[in-house]
């Protein structure tokens, strides 16, 4: 069995339901994304079109992240999923440097690398990934690409010539396919990123990677921190909140 993913961009309407489902299912922290939907505008007004491209881990057959991981925290499952073991990850960020698709992030809560696992925990129980279940137009198609009778295999065969992967020149052999995409939607070098492309604010780059509230020294001290002071009474101690915020905490 080799699991694969296909997104039909002709069907995707950019509702971001998959983003939210992924966030909820995997408890992805604020500011981090395992799956995101990018909006791309093409053309000049009034002849413009908007394209929506869901982006997630490509679960490459020849995954650079797996190769560079020094402790095998990133590893293959038998079904082809590139999984990650947060308990083993040392947080070197080598995988973030290696992934050509920018699909890996540093979890600010665990201080370890994380990414889409095709909801491996759900698949283990015979369920579909959360993003597949939630998609209102069934643009996400998931299944065994080694099984010729599976939905995804038949979809690929029916759309021969229109099935694409991102950055094939990297020889990563992605197991994530797109139908209805093009260079303008799948190649980031073919797109312009103007300041303020994020509709809701002007934050275009994260200033920090990893735990934003704990500096380098804290990484060493945190495992020895006592939590004895955290009882019901301390939760009502609002007096110290000001100091916490002054140190950059929420």
């Amino acid at each position: 069995m080799k699991l694969g993913f296909l997104v039909d961009l002709n069907l995707c309407m950019g509702c971001k339901g998959c983003e939210i489902a992924c966030k909820v299912e995997n408890e992805v922290p604020l500011g981090s994304w395992r799956l995101r939907v990018k909006y791309i505008d093409i053309g000049t007004f009034p002849e413009t079109s908007r394209s929506f491209t869901p982006l997630r881990c490509n679960h490459c057959e020849n995954a650079p992240c797996e190769r560079i991981c020094p402790v095998s925290a990133l590893h293959y499952l038998e079904n082809g999923i590139v999984n990650i073991d947060n308990e083993r990850c040392i947080g070197c960020a080598g995988c973030m440097m290696a992934c050509p698709y920018g699909a890996i992030y540093m979890d600010p809560e665990t201080n370890t690398a994380d990414k889409c696992t095709y909801c491996a925990h759900r698949i283990e129980s015979g369920m579909m990934p959360a993003c597949v279940v939630i998609c209102p137009v069934q643009a996400n198609i998931f299944g065994d690409i080694e099984d010729e009778s599976s939905h995804i295999s038949r979809y690929i065969m029916e759309h021969q010539g229109a099935v694409q992967v991102r950055k094939p020149e990297k020889h990563t052999n992605p197991k994530h396919f797109y139908v209805g995409g093009g260079t303008q939607t799948l190649d980031p070098l073919a797109q312009q990123r103007l300041e303020g492309y994020n509709l809701f604010n002007n934050i275009t780059h994260l200033e920090h990677v990893g735990d934003p509230n704990h500096g380098v020294i804290d990484r060493f001290l945190k495992p020895f921190e006592s939590h004895e002071e955290l009882d019901n009474k301390s939760m009502m101690d609002f007096a110290s909140e000001g100091a916490h915020e002054a140190e950059g905490g929420h």
């Binding site: 500011g31 994304w33 995101r36 990018k38 909006y39 791309i40 505008d41 093409i42 053309g43 000049t44 007004f45 908007r50 394209s51 960020a93 973030m96 440097m97 920018g102 992030y105 540093m106 303008q184 939607t185 073919a190 797109q191 312009q192 990123r193 103007l194 492309y197 994020n198 509709l199 934050i203 275009t204 780059h205 994260l206 200033e207 920090h208 990677v209």
Partner: peptide
């Protein structure tokens, strides 16, 4: 017209913040 970026090139209009310098 061929020099008008919006006519020939795609523009990202909505995306998440990208990671900055990692190393």
């Amino acid at each position: 017209v061929e020099h008008t970026v919006s006519a020939t090139q795609a523009i990202v209009t909505l995306d998440v913040a990208l990671p900055g310098i990692i190393w």
